[in-house]
Design a protein around this nucleic acid. Structure first.
Length: 522
DNA sequence: ATTAGGG
DNA sequence: CCCTAAT
């Protein structure tokens, strides 16, 4: 039995997103949730702290003893996993367990659970969502290795991307003897952590004075965190805001306020025997999350689906300051390496030595001010180092919520990931040229059907775009061309066809004009 | 859903 | 490749 399991915080929040636009399957994303905020709250840092505590406690058996309530998870829509009643109103909820269709038969039983979505809300009504990109298709079970291969035959978009992805594979997570089937793995390398802040950014014209004030106004504890956890925000004389180098002549500067409202947990899979207990399932989830959290993370910046790689660019230059772009701003937390707690190591040694980093959290997730146009993401997030530490060691109390909501556009729709770039091969170009020669430049749908029907990733718009660039390529001098060289013969045909069909089109337009004019006269 | 064109 | 406007 394969279960697709959505872990949610709260049990009524899941909605199917609006239908995706056009053939873009990647646009299927989950929608939002909003209700029942009176229940099921949890500070983000509570969760993180819990993870950290778990790590610390994993070594002794007290964890299990304190987790007596685990057995209720499946049957109750909202059940606490109170790992530490003294500290946290932390809760995790299984809101929905649905049977996922299995497209292939399998001799042996497969027990797989896809933790595809979980959300958490903090006590301050800030939303926190730990969300995993969902499979758009049901897992394909491979006959040859039923036990292992819960393979999603995913679209190309998911095949690309991060080379530093966390791999939670069955090797790393080999189960202890009593739970020999447990496996956790990540399917797609491209599925990074997505810290998708609902960035609430706006410009204001306050001077740098504001910076000092903003620190001073924080409660003491926060202030301390502010300064110890984030050197770049401290009273460092070299702060760009203070040396004035980035200020305009007036000494005034537009500020951008960012609030991180969400992040996501990367997708991972769990395999567990049907006979396993709920407790063990929960523990597995915890272990997976723990492993992720305990790894080194670094921060990436996404703006409208595009990565911003240049750390030296100013926010102004990247466009982060542009109000209209702010909704498309997101942070990614990408695993640098996977820290595997000993308990998850192949030998399944009891976890006794692992201790989480002690660095104090920075202000991640708080309303932060970016104090100058030259500020980089480091100013916003603190250093990579600190961010990762923050996520595992932050004490729950007094921490501003790290709320979680999917990245959205201004219209409320979720931001789609930009598709990967897929240069056309020469043979593809050849097919395209041939089709256009025959069909002309205005029937891209037919071109698609004729020559690229099998290529799911090539839409008719892609073909149209490619033709456009081909025409351009054919016109420029060879040394200006980039990428895999297209044979000159093909480029010649491109120009010929382009000329022919342009002419053809012009002729038709003329004809049409004459016809309508004639009609008017009659 | 397609087409056309700018970004 | 994306986004939109216009069909």
């Amino acid at each position: 039995m394969v279960l697709q399991n959505r872990l949610e915080y709260g049990f009524n929040g899941y909605q199917v997103p609006p239908a995706p636009r056009a053939p873009r399957s990647a646009r299927k994303r989950i929608s939002s949730w909003k209700k029942n905020r009176d229940h099921n709250r949890m500070g983000a840092f509570d969760l993180l702290a819990t993870v950290a505590r778990k790590l610390l406690l994993e070594g002794d058996d007290s964890v299990d003893k304190t987790n007596n309530e685990e057995g209720r998870v499946v049957n109750e829509p909202a059940v606490k996993t109170e790992s530490d009643s003294s500290k946290a109103n932390t809760s995790f909820f299984v809101s929905e367990i649905i049977k996922a269709p299995v497209t292939d038969s399998c001799s042996g039983p497969i027990s797989g659970i896809t933790v595809s979505d979980c959300r958490i809300e903090d006590i301050n009504h800030k939303e926190i969502e730990m969300e995993v990109p969902k499979n758009r298709k049901p897992p394909v079970v491979n006959n040859l290795d039923c036990n292992l291969k819960l393979v999603t035959k995913d679209d190309d978009e998911n095949l690309c991307g991060s080379t530093q992805s966390v791999t939670l594979n069955n090797k790393i997570f080999r189960a202890p003897a009593r739970m020999c089937d447990r496996r956790i793995r990540r399917l797609s390398a491209s599925k990074q952590w997505k810290v998708t802040p609902k960035t609430e950014v706006y410009r204001n014209k306050k001077s740098c004075y504001n910076h000092q004030r903003s620190i001073r106004d924080y409660p003491f504890k926060k202030r301390r965190l502010y300064q110890t956890g984030n050197p770049s925000m401290s009273n460092n004389k070299s702060d760009s805001i203070e040396d004035g180098s980035s200020l305009g002549e007036t000494g005034q500067d537009s500020h951008v306020k960012l609030k991180i409202k969400s992040f996501r947990v990367p997708e991972f899979f769990i395999e567990i025997p049907e006979t396993a207990t709920v407790r063990s399932l929960k523990r597995m989830v915890m272990e997976a999350v723990t492993a992720i959290f305990s790894g080194e993370l670094h921060v990436g910046l996404m703006l409208q689906g595009k990565r911003i790689r240049d750390d030296n660019k100013t926010l102004l230059q990247t466009g982060i300051c542009h109000d209209n772009k702010l909704d498309g701003l997101g942070f990614t937390l990408e695993p640098r390496e996977l820290h595997v707690p000993p308990s998850l190591c192949p030998e399944d040694q009891p976890l006794t030595r692992y201790s989480p980093p002690q660095t104090v959290a920075n202000e991640l997730g708080m309303q932060q001010q970016v104090d100058s146009p030259t500020a980089t993401s480091r100013n916003i997030m603190g250093s990579d180092h600190e961010v990762s530490r923050a996520l595992v060691t932050v004490p729950a109390k007094n921490m501003t919520p790290l709320a979680v909501v999917p990245m959205r556009r201004s219209n409320g729709a979720e931001v789609a990931q930009r598709r990967i770039r897929r240069p056309f091969s020469v043979s593809e170009v050849d097919a395209l040229v041939e089709a256009v020669e025959k069909l002309g430049t205005g029937r891209w749908r037919d071109v698609k059907l004729r020559a690229f029907d099998d290529a799911k990733h090539r839409t008719y718009v892609d073909l149209k775009d490619k033709w456009k660039t081909l025409v351009h390529t054919a016109r420029i001098s060879p040394h200006q061309r980039r990428g895999e060289p297209v044979p000159q013969e093909l480029l010649d045909r491109v120009l010929t066809a382009h000329g022919y069909w342009s002419h053809h089109q012009a002729k038709n337009q003329l004809k049409h004009q004459l016809e309508t004019q004639t009609c008017r006269l009659l």
